[in-house]
Each structure stands twice: as structure tokens, then as C-alpha cells.
Nucleic acid binder design. Sequence first.
DNA 1: AATAATTGTGAAAAATATTTGCAAATTCTT
DNA 2: AAGAATTTGCAAATATTTTTCACAATTATT
Lengths: 212, 212
Amino acid sequence: MTDQKIPRATAKRLPIYYRYLNILLDADKTRVSSTELSDAVKVDSATIRRDFSYFGALGKRGYGYDVESLVKFFKKILNQDRLTNVGLIGVGNLGHALLNFNFHQDGNVRISAAFDVNEELANTIQSGVPIYPMTDLRKQLEEQQIQVAILTVPADVAQEVTNDAVAGGVKGILNFTPLRITVPKDVRVQNVDLTNELQTLIYFLEHYNHKD
Amino acid sequence: MTDQKIPRATAKRLPIYYRYLNILLDADKTRVSSTELSDAVKVDSATIRRDFSYFGALGKRGYGYDVESLVKFFKKILNQDRLTNVGLIGVGNLGHALLNFNFHQDGNVRISAAFDVNEELANTIQSGVPIYPMTDLRKQLEEQQIQVAILTVPADVAQEVTNDAVAGGVKGILNFTPLRITVPKDVRVQNVDLTNELQTLIYFLEHYNHKD
DNA sequence: AATAATTGTGAAAAATATTTGCAAATTCTT
DNA sequence: AAGAATTTGCAAATATTTTTCACAATTATT
């Protein structure tokens, strides 16, 4: 909560490190050097050391990093040590798929409630997740103390729904709608615009012929 | 094809501009200034002009931009004027959802073939898209001249499948697997790691309390 | 004890992105 | 038609972010 800010680029690499460190742990490796890690995750070793150093001195000079304690450390940093309940708003195509999607690689993230306007869907259970009517959004989010929401509603209601969700106490939104929603400054939005991604990909494809 | 490189940040904003310009066009607006656009898309007007200027002089001084020609121009730039066929590799949860997903806002992107190892699925048609067995991947991609693939297979076969796809002529991959796949340098990969996005979101949530 | 390995980090460099400031062009106003 | 008001395009300046270098300090190994 009171860490100094780490660069966005670093934050984005953390899950990648974490994932690989777990592989090492499973393989009973006890130590790893930044050079070794570098090969595996394709990130320059100096960058890795720099990234790690934002969190203090995690390694030992002349030795490297202890896999187990590093995993333990990142587990905590990445909130993998406790369960984060997530609300899914909008159970259409994509929403439905995400209900089944394995977010919880280590069981730390769980979609614990979903919401939809469709009266047919509401009050049923889909893939083990209860679906509530959209009218209960705010109430349920509050009651279940859900702070993270996945937004998969049609763009034209996105802002409206967002306002509701924020009123219900949501602090982080994974936004799958193409709309750039407006939120209070203490709420964080992460946009995943699939159409955009695909368009950007096609753009680069047509206009350059080289990676990055 | 031989444009000078435009910044990544600019490329990412293009679809946003494009989307809004279409709204203007639908509303029968004939002209728009960078300042107006700025308000709508929340990007500084100088940045917008800068962005546009990478493509030459698109506006008229003292006037602004002609909405219709700008839309037309971006339509071309963003390949919205022709159909791009896309292959979907892996028809699991997510894959299935993407089959129904409305990528084709303007009918320019179409998933024209899908692939799965599951023998039950193969040779059926799902959501109007023929599913081929994974063994036909390379052949079908070649035959149908598909250059863009969406990768939604399990991580442990991701690299293998990628190699096949690349052998089949794929030049762009929208990679939904958590694996960082390796490709020849003329192939572009755009990663969409949902687990990662969610984890990063949660990380920021716990560790800061302010947007960006 | 000497040698090799490896971290952590200040500082430099590189890469990326935004903003300023203004001449030039055009439209609008009277 | 002259003058005022807009508005682009763009070079240059600035800012921000990210990566890399380079090496002292520390630890492990032989």
C-alpha cells in the first residue's frame, strides 16, 4: 500500500516472473540467477535485477535468488496468497466464456458473482457462479465486498453500469468494452479491447514487416 | 507498406479516433477540429495533430478536418476497407466465445476457419465457422491464405501450434495463451494475457490508490 | 587464499511520448 | 475586401519511461 511506485513495465513483468518461478519450484530447483531467468523469460538480466530491486534486496550476491523465498515473496506481492473475489458484469458471449476461464491458476481469483439484465439468466447459476439481475448490482457488490469487476456489457450501457459498480465499491475494472469509461481517480481501469488489439495487429502487419 | 514507422502509442490511438470519427459521420457532421476531437477522445489536441501528421497533411488550416475524408482515409489505413480473414486456433471456452464475438464492427474481420484437436468438434460448423482438425492447420491456412491467427489453445501446445501456423503462412498472431511464443522476426505477436491483466490490476489496486 | 559468480544500483543512454510555439493557410466577420 | 479569428502542421524542446552499462560489494567454490 505504501510501496514506492514501481514502473508500469516492471509491474507487467511480475506475473511472468512469478509464473516461471513456479515452474522452477515444481522442478525442485532451489536457486536461480538473473541470467538463467533471463533466458527463460526473454528479459535482459539487468532488467530483471532492476525489477527485483524495486522490492529490496531479494537475492544474494555470488549466489543468485532462492527460488522458494522468491516465489513466496511474489505470491504475496501479487496477492496470490489470498482469495480475490471478482464480479462479472454482463453474461453475454464473452462474459460466459470468462465464467469458465481459468483465471485462478492458483486459486487466488474467483468470479463469485455475475450480473445480467436478462431476466432469464438472472437467478440461475452458470458454471457454478450465481447470476444476479443487473438491478441488484450495487447491492450485491456491497454485500459481497467485491472490489474488482470484469466489464463485459454492451458499449452503450458501459458507463452507466460502471457508475453503478463504482457506487457499489468497486476499485478496479477490467474493461472489455470499447468505451473508455470515466471513473473517479481512486478507481483503476485496465482496458482489454479485443477489436482494437486485432486491428492494431493487422495494421502493423500491413505496414511493417518486422516484429516490434 | 513503406510508411515510415509511426509510434506504437499513435497506432494504438488510431482505432479510437476511427471509432469516434464514424460517430461524427453518422451524425452528419462534416468537419471537426483537433480541439473538438480532443474533448471527445480525451487526448490532447496537439497529440492528435501530431498523430495525424504522421500520415501527411490530412486537415486544412483554419478549417479543421473533413470528417468524411478522414474516415475514408483511416478506413484504408486500418484495413477496414477490405476483408481480413482470420483463423481461430483452439475452440475451447475462450475460442468459442470469440467465434461469436463481434470483431467485425464494420465487417472487415471475419473468422473464416477454426481449428481444434477435438475430433468431435472437427468437421462441424460452429457459429457459422467451419472447424477443421488440428492436423489440417497448415494446409487450410495455406489454402485459404489466412495470415492472421487467434491463438486460444492450452499453453503446453502453444509453441508447437504456433510453429505449424507460421509454417502455414501466418504473419500475425493474437496470442491468448500465457506463453510467450517464439516466432520468426517477420511474424508479429500481440499478447492478450487475461490472467496477467487481472493480476496486474489487482496488484495496482493493492499497492497504490490512484489511477495511472 | 585466490578465483569465479552474481547481486544491487548509481548513472548514462536510449527509447518513447508529449507539449510548445508559431508560421502558414484558411475561414469568418463586418 | 480588409482585418480578425481559427486552426493545421511541424520543428524543436521537453518530459517521461525504460533499458542498459559498468562495477563495487558480497558470497560461493576450489
